[in-house]
Design a protein around this nucleic acid. Structure first.
Lengths: 149, 149
DNA sequence: TATTGTTATACTCTATAACTATA
DNA sequence: TATAGTTATAGAGTATAACAATA
């Protein structure tokens, strides 16, 4: 998958970011097909699995999504038996979303699949280059000037 | 615009790419509002303006879009008087898309606006860091192992 | 036969407003 | 009155199939 860039686009950082992101999502989605997940679902699952219960509002903020989109996303994961909505003790407005045991198992398998997918995207990037890229993307994603200590 | 990343997402390169790209597009779109353009339209305009006429198929391939999407995109630019569809001499199946004088003027203004927008995205990246990032994104966007000489 | 441009269609993603139940 | 979840809806973006004109 190598394609030339027209000179008029080669300097366009925004365009490069867009198609790189699209490529990354497409590769991740393809890799996750056997597990019945897509990139967004994997991200949400890994987020929830690392917590001891998250409100959908917190999920929305972490994933940079509108709360209304989170409903369908969690519906899908819940339909696959990967997460559960539980009543929140103390505030009955909240739903505490937690990963099921099956959700933890699938997340672990998916993490390996995604690791390989990223490896394929970063083919022939050295370890140092990967670290540099990761640091830069972290700064860009958070809008933070410097990586916090 | 600084927001923390949950630890579960901080290592997710694909997620970082996605939200960085979304941020970049949002910033570019906002900056282009006064010119009546969006990021995609600017990219297409700059591509066409750098050529002496492109078929819509060539535009689709350069922009990584489906040819059917290019129709609406060029319709929009043509409606604003920024590009023209001309018959292609020699092959009557082709439409040669070229930038109008007004298209060239708008493209020039837009390029400045986009330059500032990218500058805002890359706030406090050094010149060297910008060069490194650009080189990495070029490799990732084209799927090419090394930057061609 | 194959290709360009085009239309139609559908599916995903995203964004907004409004409703309900709780607080 | 304010907030969490939800629903409905509409707008982008993307992908596929099919058709007319032309090669």
């Amino acid at each position: 998958m190598t394609r030339d860039l027209p000179p008029a686009l080669a300097e366009n950082v925004g365009f490069l970011l867009s198609i790189t992101s699209a490529r990354s999502v497409a590769m991740a989605n393809a890799a996750l097909v056997p597990l019945g997940l897509k990139a967004r679902g994997y991200t949400a699952l890994s987020l929830v699995a690392a917590s001891d219960g998250m409100s959908q509002r917190d999920i929305a903020e972490a994933l940079r999504m509108d709360p209304s989109q989170v409903v369908a996303l969690i519906d899908t994961l819940e339909g696959k038996g990967l997460v559960e909505r539980r009543p929140h003790p103390g505030d009955r407005r909240l739903r505490s979303v937690v990963a099921t045991p099956e959700g933890h198992r699938v997340r672990k398998k998916a993490a390996k699949v995604i690791k390989d997918s990223v490896s394929a995207l970063l083919t022939d990037f050295t370890e140092e280059e990967r670290t540099v890229l990761h640091g830069m993307l972290t700064r860009l994603a958070t809008g933070r000037t410097t990586t916090p200590a």
